[in-house]
Design a protein around this nucleic acid. Structure first.
Lengths: 212, 212
DNA sequence: CGTCGTTGTAATCATCCGATTACCTATTCG
DNA sequence: CGAATAGGTAATCGGATGATTACAACGACG
């Protein structure tokens, strides 16, 4: 079995940690917090299940790190947009920043899953704080009014739902889906579409790793 | 132990079934599909765990029934709003209908959970169909344009997130929360607030039932 | 009354899954 | 080199959980 990426030398642990976090983001995004097993994260990362647990201590803490990472990326993207070219309207700048985030489904889907778990004492608290931080960022540093910020957030939430529902999978067969997606993503629709290929029954094959 | 609702006579099974569905809606809303156990649903319903399974066959089928019930209530409420007083603008009529639905957190939260599970072959399919049915209803039978319908949906999604996050719990302590909620729920804010009391650490005590 | 379908439960099973333990291997440092 | 530390896995455990089975209580009907 000669994989192309076969390595004799060991990967630095920081790098491996980030790799696991990225894989965990994808898996948690697809199956939610309670619905994903640490083993699934391990397989998606190419490491063993006990190692995932030992790296993060707990599945809950792993999810919290995934959540913080996602919120960080959102924060970074929005701040860059706010500091961007003032010739372009702020809403469009933010919208384009959001579009770039959709390239990684997991980031936005993990946020949605967290936003639906407000009743959880730990995850809910973190999610509330993160959400309000985003709102405050939009309202206080983008020059938007509270109403504008809320409207922008609302559009983002609809976009998240569209991603979570995998509506793109029905784009070709459902006219109403085409119309809706056209208004939710008025720009770059074809690009987003290409980065969200339909889910084949067997799933888009990632690198296979032996089971538990 | 003389409970007030102590009954000698047996409850009709249709009624009991609806009771279990309502309880399941609340529990699934709080902890999501994968995160809730059939035992939790049973305890919230006051019946035994095996009975819940036997009534619905499978946890998955139970959730599907909960989902359909929620979509039905949404459909019914929106159709009533569409047929309502034309003196009032359609958006306000629909908004008020949505407000009434918030009285039962579970309905909207179950929808959100389902909307985030698009990758699930069974639940995802049902969720996509239900969501698009709602969109088509708004676009085709309310007189709204596709853009209006999408905007209304976006506002609804933000409202759902606000409910899922339990932002009302922080209303008194966070000024930004007050401002945001004021713009998300421009009407009846105090009424919604009263129907969404903060979650005490031990949880708002429902009727206790013996564990498994 | 007796029997039969319906409504419901207690006990239990088989599986899954997060976590722990014990162990192995690479790398660093004296 | 040789010991020590960090990176990593195989094996396994214990509890949770969805589902099944066997059985009990109720109620209608002859």
């Amino acid at each position: 079995m000669s994989s192309v990426t076969e390595k004799k030398t060991r990967m630095p642990s920081d790098e491996r940690r980030e790799l696991v976090l990225a894989a965990a983001t994808t898996v948690f995004g697809d199956t939610g917090y309670a619905g994903t097993t640490t083993d699934a994260v391990a397989r998606a990362s190419g490491v063993s299940q006990p190692y995932v647990v030992r790296m993060f201590g707990t599945k809950e803490q792993l999810f919290l790190e995934v959540l913080h990472r996602a919120l960080d990326k959102l924060d970074t993207a929005f701040r860059a947009a706010i500091a961007g070219d003032p010739e372009v309207g702020i809403e469009r700048r933010l919208g384009l920043a959001y579009f770039e985030l959709t390239a990684d489904r997991g980031i936005l889907l993990c946020l949605m899953h967290a936003f639906a778990l407000g009743a959880d004492p730990v995850i809910g608290t973190a999610a509330r704080c993160g959400f309000m931080d985003v709102y405050r960022l939009l309202r206080d540093e983008s020059g938007m009014s509270g109403q504008q910020a809320a409207d922008f957030l609302a559009g983002g939430m609809l976009a998240n739902v569209v991603l979570g529902l995998r509506l793109f999978d029905d784009y070709d067969t459902e006219p109403a889906v085409q119309e809706l997606l056209g208004t939710v993503f008025p720009e770059k629709l074809d690009i987003i579409r290409r980065s969200h290929p339909p889910l084949t029954p067997s799933g888009p094959s990632r690198t296979a790793a032996p089971g538990r």
